[in-house]
Computed example of a mutant assay.
Amino acid sequence: MQWTTLTATAVGTVLGVMATLAADHVRRRHDRSERDHDTLRTALLEYLTALSRAKDAFSRSELAPERVGAGHIAISEHGVYAAQHQLELVAPPSLLDKARRATLSVLDFHDVVVSGRTPDSGEYIHAWRVAGQARAALIEETRVTLRRI
């Protein structure tokens, strides 16, 4: 047998194996990226849902000055902290910062409501808007992050 034939066969085999390994690597990376994307999207959806439930519930809260500053208890009852902890496992720091700000803005809104501010008061309107702006900033950061993944 000629050495050139044997060498060409060996080189062809090595190149074929390398191409297969490279294709498998690219496919695994793509699959992992899709899983990461879906995991982050699910965690964000759960967090935003819990945050919205809490904000809506707080908007119907009654006057209770003794509950000012106790919003963290009320917000945990709506699963916000649990969803935020889940988000901390999968989200990048920039997104977590926006999520924390959104949580704090809803806590501030809670305090405004239970302190007796009515929906037509300036404090109520301001707290409502700040919470909405924090949520909008989180959603925008989410879009940017999901495009990068």
Rank of each mutant, 00 (worst) to 15 (best):
R67I: 00
S115C: 05
S52Q: 14
H78F: 08
D120F: 13
Y81A: 15
S94D: 12
L96D: 04
H78Y: 06
W3S: 13
T9C: 10
M18S: 13
S59M: 02
A19H: 14
R35H: 12
A136V: 06
V11G: 13
E140C: 09
D111A: 01
S121T: 10
A137M: 05
S121E: 03
H126I: 10
V68S: 03
A22W: 11
R135P: 04
A82E: 11
A136P: 07
A136R: 11
D108Q: 04
H110P: 01
L40M: 00
L6R: 15
V90W: 00
I75A: 06
R117D: 14
R35E: 12
V68L: 01
D108Y: 00
G79K: 06
R27M: 00
M1A: 09
R32H: 07
S121G: 04
W128F: 06
G69Q: 00
V144E: 04
V90G: 07
R28M: 01
A8V: 13
R60G: 11
S105F: 00
T4R: 14
V14M: 09
T13C: 14
D56Y: 08
H85P: 07
G79S: 05
L40F: 01
Y81P: 10
P92S: 14
A74T: 07
A50Q: 03
L96N: 04
A74D: 06
I73V: 14
D111E: 00
R35I: 10
R148L: 00
V26H: 13
D97I: 11
T13G: 15
A8I: 13
L21R: 10
R135F: 00
R41L: 02
W3A: 08
A82N: 07
D120C: 11
L138N: 06
V106F: 04
Q86L: 09
T42G: 11
T7I: 15
E77K: 11
R135E: 01
A70P: 09
A57Y: 00
V14S: 07
L40R: 01
L95R: 09
A57T: 07
S115R: 14
M1N: 12
H72V: 08
R27L: 01
T4Y: 07
L89I: 05
G132W: 00
H110I: 02
L96P: 07
H85R: 11
G122H: 15
T118H: 15
D24P: 07
S61R: 09
V11P: 12
R41P: 05
V11S: 13
R35D: 08
P65I: 01
A91R: 06
W128M: 14
L87P: 09
L107P: 08
